[in-house]
Computed example of a mutant assay.
Amino acid sequence: MSDLPFIYQFLSGAVAGISEILVMYPLDVVKTRIQLQTAPQGSPEAYSSMIDAFRKIVRNEGFSRLYKGITAPILMEAPKRAVKFSANDSWGRFYREKFGVVGPSQPLAVLTGATAGATESFVVVPFELVKIRVQDVSSTYKGPGDVVVQMVKKEGIFSLYNGLEATLWRHITWNAGYFGVISQARTLLPKATTPSERMRNDLVAGTIGGTTGTLLNTPFDVVKSRIQSTVRVPGATPKYNWTLPGVATVAREEGLAALYKGFLPKVLRLGPGGGILLVVYTKCMEFFSVYASS
């Protein structure tokens, strides 16, 4: 199926991405809130858990706040997921030809996933930044469009790519873990002989892959959220500016556990979400395979 033209890979990735975001977006809002939180534990405004964050957001701001800023992710999901899967397929073909590899292998899957993650990062940074600014509890922006206008006016056009380096770290590690584990999991799962069994295997493999990717990239995601939520002031050096120093700062000031702030909502989203992505993408590619051959 990966030999289908790029347009079919792109459309399949877009449909998969939008399906996942519609189901899982509230978990992303909660994850971002917890990652940006610096209030001391035990204070009234602090989130003590994922459930507590859900409860306080709904009680204090209304249920609709759980979908606040979804416009940017919806606009992002089509190109983001389309690039993720189509780049993974395209880079896979490139590396197989480059290294003379005939079949799939886990090292090749990890390399391909990491490269696809780097490619994807350049597409998603502005959308991610807008989403973070809107989701922040202290946000005064009217919406995604207002974020763009205000940032360009106050911080310059290139501010829309604040956090690119951290995004590269986040997406390279997640994609390497996701696609690398999918490759291995598919070989270990019982052989599928029916469409329902293939869907089951894709759901299981994608969920394991999404969980692994999340374990690897959460520290980088925490720092990325901090970097992108910071308004840049001319002449002032932001506290969070580069990824690895940012990781060290969070660990030193808040403890190692702080590098996994928001992990539970994140893994609940990207674990099952990874399964949803793989199932929908595979089904779309199967549909387009039949369509292209008819």
Results as ranks from 00 to 15, higher is better:
198 R>L: 10
172 I>P: 02
162 N>A: 10
198 R>V: 01
165 E>G: 07
161 Y>K: 07
176 A>E: 03
194 T>D: 06
164 L>E: 03
193 T>L: 13
187 T>C: 08
176 A>D: 04
186 R>L: 15
160 L>P: 05
188 L>R: 13
167 T>I: 00
188 L>D: 09
189 L>H: 11
190 P>R: 10
195 P>I: 11
191 K>E: 15
183 S>M: 02
199 M>E: 12
192 A>G: 12
177 G>L: 04
200 R>W: 11
198 R>C: 08
192 A>R: 13
175 N>L: 05
176 A>S: 08
172 I>D: 00
192 A>S: 14
186 R>F: 14
191 K>T: 15
179 F>K: 04
189 L>F: 14
183 S>Q: 07
169 W>N: 00
173 T>I: 05
197 E>N: 08
159 S>Y: 03
167 T>Y: 01
180 G>R: 07
187 T>M: 13
199 M>C: 11
182 I>Y: 06
197 E>L: 14
181 V>W: 03
190 P>C: 14
194 T>F: 15
172 I>L: 03
169 W>V: 02
172 I>M: 05
174 W>E: 05
159 S>C: 04
180 G>P: 01
195 P>T: 13
161 Y>E: 07
191 K>Q: 15
180 G>H: 02
183 S>K: 10
174 W>I: 07
173 T>M: 09
180 G>L: 00
184 Q>G: 14
185 A>G: 14
198 R>P: 07
174 W>M: 06
161 Y>P: 02
192 A>Y: 12
169 W>T: 03
194 T>P: 08
189 L>Y: 10
163 G>D: 00
181 V>I: 05
183 S>T: 07
187 T>E: 14
191 K>W: 12
177 G>I: 07
199 M>N: 11
199 M>V: 13
159 S>I: 02
182 I>L: 09
196 S>H: 11
194 T>G: 09
196 S>Q: 09
196 S>E: 15
160 L>D: 05
174 W>N: 02
197 E>V: 09
198 R>D: 12
184 Q>R: 15
182 I>W: 05
185 A>C: 12
168 L>G: 06
183 S>P: 03
188 L>C: 09
172 I>G: 02
183 S>H: 06
193 T>H: 12
189 L>V: 11
191 K>R: 12
193 T>N: 14
187 T>L: 11
194 T>K: 13
200 R>P: 08
166 A>Y: 01
187 T>K: 15
190 P>Q: 12
